[in-house]
Design a protein around this nucleic acid. Sequence first.
DNA 1: ACTGTTAACTTAACAATGTTAAGTTAACGG
DNA 2: CCGTTAACTTAACATTGTTAAGTTAACAGT
Lengths: 208, 208
Amino acid sequence: MLTKSTSEQDKQELRARIMEVARDLFVQKGIDAVTMREIAKRIGYSATSIYLYFADKQALLREICESDFAAMASHIKVILEIADAEKRLIAISDSYAKFALMYPNHYQLMYMTPHARYGISVDDEYKNNLEKDAYFQLRTVVNAVFLEGKFRKEWNDVDLIAQTLWAGIHGVCALQITMPKEDWINWRPVEHRLQMMQTLLKLGLTER
Amino acid sequence: MLTKSTSEQDKQELRARIMEVARDLFVQKGIDAVTMREIAKRIGYSATSIYLYFADKQALLREICESDFAAMASHIKVILEIADAEKRLIAISDSYAKFALMYPNHYQLMYMTPHARYGISVDDEYKNNLEKDAYFQLRTVVNAVFLEGKFRKEWNDVDLIAQTLWAGIHGVCALQITMPKEDWINWRPVEHRLQMMQTLLKLGLTER
DNA sequence: ACTGTTAACTTAACAATGTTAAGTTAACGG
DNA sequence: CCGTTAACTTAACATTGTTAAGTTAACAGT
């Protein structure tokens, strides 16, 4: 406002700042509860300035989502270094859940918001990419364990296995985020629920 | 509009009609995308008339949710007649998933919307009630199976078991609803994923 | 049949929202 | 130092949830 972001770098920085502030607000108050004017005030510009950097609110949201998908994948990526495939699988599941519960609102944007409704569509760059696609990471690890012959014979569809594992962890996290303390349910600690889910899935997959 | 709803019965009917129409719109377009004026137009009254029957949009939403919780519980209730406890458990899980996938938008309102954010809080009448509380129904059946000694010894916390089972089924359904066809995931049919989830959980819970 | 009274309903209005169009002004090139 | 352009702002619009102020339908009593 005092000075204009004229250089390419300044513009990129301002763009990034808008995304940061917007994500914080989205995450804190919900997408529809955040106004463009509020975002603008926080970055010290007028509301309409945002439209110089993003086509509209939806586009802003979409970019935030994409960047969060990447953040999650990079959060998980270190796991892929682990040598033992089975340990890798446990670790990736832990890591996924940890991300979900540490950043519940990011997670909500990414995996609990009906994408079609908000016009979210992920760029191709994020698909089937070990760096940027968390599902692909999981599938890859599941495949490694599968190739080592660690699963019961009846489980021979790697995609099906990965998707079921995903659903299990997602279910625990999503319920925790949606109904964190509905008093009529005698909730057990989310860590216990996660632990149990992992154990059940593992027993079902591997024990003979 | 031509005639006024003066008798108690007329008023109740109009109230119910508002809820019906509003639910249809909510599930079809999302809560925030539906305007009071749109609901009003469909019932043939002015927008402000809705406020004669519901305090505000949030209150309307809350009542719809409550009524849907009851609908689900009643959908599940017939299951409780099944004599064999283990079969009852399978059936309740099938029935839950069936409801979720048959009425994805109801389900979304009920179990995938952060309740706090929309000020949803369920009336006491729906809690710990075998007629109206689906979680309580599940917990009851889990308890019956537990008392028959069908679970492995290490699983001795009935709430924990029920919550983990719930999370498993919920995870499959919720992912299906949120990302029904994201093309970069090689989705297996949701029926297969459900089947596998149930099998894994059962193996983990019962097999020695 | 008329007339109040009341409760059901409508219209008008408000502040707030996303977004566009029209103005300003800062910065850089000459 | 001036003119052009791109960055930014102000003004404005249609739409939203909601409230306040009006209208009118229905029923009760004469």
